[in-house]
Amino acid sequence: MNERQIVLEVNGKEYKLTVKPNELLINVLRERLGLMGTKYGCGVGECGACTVLMDGNPVLSCQMLALSASGSKITTIEGIAQNGRLHPLQEAFLDEGAVQCGFCTPGMILSAKALLDKKPNPTDMEIKEAIRGNICRCTGYINILRAIKTASLKLSERSR
């Protein structure tokens, strides 16, 4: 009932979808578009595993109705690498041992990307604030913080 048409641009590709008002963005991304990199972790906005970028800003796809995302540009973890080349954040997460079980990694990288897009040279405190909404239960965060720092250095070298 009450189905509506929405248009979503996900990772640069446009999708026209029919959704019901009660459908959550996370379930549309995962079940309809097959983008399984967006994870369900808590369902109440605490863990950040479902983080996606909406018009460049990190939001929680499990706290968002698909309808209210209509017309926006969504980036998921699958849309970060360009032409098969990993984003510097992805490389840094690998190089610094910032990935353990990996379940938080997609949301974590997206939060970090939004930060670096806005602030290419963040302070340690700014990095911590930026990822406070992404729970990692494995790493104790240290290697993650280092990876984000490494990526920020790499990106600023590149832009020089």
Partner: peptide
């Protein structure tokens, strides 16, 4: 208040 994600919403 909350996280970056929460405040973005």
């Amino acid at each position: 208040l909350g996280s970056v994600q929460i405040r973005n919403m």
